[in-house]
């Protein structure tokens, strides 16, 4: 586990512990946050916007770097840098899109009557981040011209995209997916329990989301097991 992963895990754990403690103490912080939710949306939109902007800047730098002619000695280092920068671009775009999605979803619940303009702006940012996410595919086509990437309208797009990877890359991808699978199972189960406790303590029913999270858990595990079983 690298330093960035550790830092993200610590931040998420602290947020979850904070939310549980706050819930235990009568949701004082949560209620205060909801009372001035427009400020929270504004601050988070700026944070998401900065991450989005950094992703754009990074993708421009990446394009320039990939067009640069390099000497024999520095070729490997530059290519390694390109691989890492591309991963960073997708990471920044994906985090900013998730932040905007969260703000639109919660803002729509809390602020749709009082601050519809703010929600509309954040929705615009969500669309921009979504398009930037799509654009990372075309960026990959530009920086890895030797690879035979499928066209986006291809019926077997996902399958062909998987086949673009060589065995070593598939091995890395498998390790990453397995890690995600190991995280998502206990995490979803914990969130279901948390939503249940939240419903009981606050009287605000979370049954709708609990049902969907349970369905998600069943779908994920069934897909995983059936894929293995049928091979």
């Amino acid at each position: 586990m690298n330093k960035l992963q550790k830092a993200v895990n610590i931040i998420i754990t602290l947020i979850v512990i904070g939310l549980v403690v706050d819930l235990w103490r009568g949701s004082l912080i949560l209620n205060k946050l909801i009372d001035s939710y427009e400020s929270f949306v504004f601050i988070m939109a700026i944070i998401g916007g900065l991450l989005f902007l950094y992703g754009i800047i990074l993708s421009r730098r990446l394009k320039k770097l990939s067009e640069k002619s390099v000497s024999f000695d520095e070729e490997d280092k530059i290519n390694e840098k390109i691989d890492k920068m591309y991963a960073d671009v997708t990471l920044f775009h994906s985090i900013s899109m998730t932040i905007f999605l969260f703000l639109v979803a919660t803002g729509f619940i809390i602020l749709r009557d009082t601050y519809p303009g703010l929600i509309l702006i954040v929705f615009g940012l969500l669309v921009a981040a979504f398009l930037a996410n799509l654009n990372t595919y075309y960026l990959a086509k530009e920086i890895y011209p030797e690879r035979n990437y499928p066209e986006t309208d291809d019926e077997q797009f996902q399958e062909k995209l998987f086949e673009v990877m060589d065995d070593g890359e598939k091995f890395i991808t498998l390790q990453a997916y397995y890690k995600v699978f190991q995280i998502i199972n206990p995490l979803l189960a914990a969130v279901i329990m948390l939503a249940s406790i939240y419903s009981a303590f606050t009287g605000e029913s979370q049954i709708f989301s609990i049902v969907f999270m349970t369905i998600m858990l069943i779908v994920i595990n069934t897909t995983y097991i059936l894929t293995i079983r049928d091979k």
């Binding site: 070729e75 691989d83 070593g168």
Partner: peptide, 18 residues
């Protein structure tokens, strides 16, 4: 270098490095 070998073997530089 790794990039050249990767091209010759029709694999990625990452795989050579791994």
């Amino acid at each position: 270098n790794q990039t050249q070998l990767a091209k010759m073997a029709n694999i990625s530089r990452q795989t050579v490095s791994l």
